[in-house]
């Protein structure tokens, strides 16, 4: 591999941003947030940020109920992180398992699973989410469900494709001759060879998930208020995008930095681990 001086700095920067914007706040919001994110200082409504006429009391300003934007963003990181982790873990698990089965068993199982993938791709996920939200009301669980629904197919397709190739590999044939069970072959010989793909794919999904959460909030079916989820903060502040721009700008910035960093990191990982992966 050629030396890539500039590009190599990027993952470090990305990782730093991720830790500062997402991970530390998510873990330590209670300690570092200057205010209770739910506490409404009704006398301090719509205060601008420091340097824009505000005070050090509310560094990033306050929202329409006088809640501290900074504290809400810091606490919001918890939701961004937990939705990403839970949603992607589950989505990747479902997709990988079914992808392995489809690729390894082929035949009927493959046909059925791949049709189900087609169907999930063909169903407009946003509309499905809207329908489910009218059914059961918006909730954290619903957001997770939509995340799983949206991403599992990508894992299933990719894992199946690689499994199809791997099952014909010599070392798998040898293991089979040696009497290894299907389960053992999948676990010991095939899965380890596709872990890189899964990791890269999972990293690249974080951005998808964070943006999806925001989109659901825009449609009024995201994480229910008054939870300070980033997407909800942006969606809620969009009406006041001119006069009280800080309400949506700072959470939007948090989303931007997080998604950008995690995608750059994902791209870098892919170049390193799995350059053939044609994942979008």
């Amino acid at each position: 591999m050629r030396k890539r001086p500039f590009f190599d700095g990027l993952p470090v920067i990305s990782l730093t941003i991720l830790v500062v914007v997402l991970v530390i706040p998510a873990l330590f919001a209670d300690l570092i947030a200057p205010h209770d994110p739910y506490k409404a200082y009704l006398r301090n409504r719509l205060e601008p940020p420091l340097f824009f006429g505000g005070t050090t009391e509310f560094i990033l300003g306050t929202d329409r109920l006088g809640r501290d934007i900074l504290s809400r963003i810091l606490h919001g990181a918890k939701y961004a992180l937990s939705i990403s982790i839970v949603g992607i873990l589950l989505g990747a698990a479902v997709g990988t398992a079914l992808g392995l089965i489809a690729g390894y068993l082929r035949g009927m199982a493959d046909a059925v699973i791949m049709r189900v993938v087609d169907i999930t791709f063909a169903l407009p996920s946003i509309l499905l989410a809207l329908a489910l939200a009218t059914l059961s009301g918006p909730s954290f669980q619903l957001v997770i469900f939509v995340v799983i629904f949206v991403i599992w197919g990508y894992f299933a397709r990719q894992v199946r494709a690689e499994t199809l190739v791997l099952r014909e590999a010599d070392f798998v044939a040898r293991a089979r001759v040696a009497g290894a069970s299907d389960l053992r072959i999948l676990r010991k010989y095939i899965l380890p060879n596709i872990v890189n793909t899964i990791v890269v794919l999972a990293t690249l999904q974080v951005g998808v998930v964070v943006i999806l959460e925001a989109t659901l909030s825009f449609l009024g079916i995201g994480i229910p208020r008054p939870t300070p989820a980033w997407g909800l903060l942006v969606a809620d502040g969009r009406q006041l995008i001119v006069s009280s721009w800080w309400i949506s700008f700072f959470p939007g910035l948090a989303i931007l930095l997080t998604v950008l960093s995690v995608n750059l990191l994902g791209d870098w990982l892919r170049d390193r681990l799995d350059p053939k992966l044609r994942q979008v």
Binding site: L10, G207, A214, T215, R238, G252, I255, L256, L260
Partner: peptide, 17 residues
């Protein structure tokens, strides 16, 4: 690097915003 950042910007913001 610049190309990928430009490309990624669009994916990093909620479309409505």
């Amino acid at each position: 690097a610049v190309a990928s950042v430009i490309a990624l910007l669009g994916q990093s913001l909620p479309a409505f915003w």
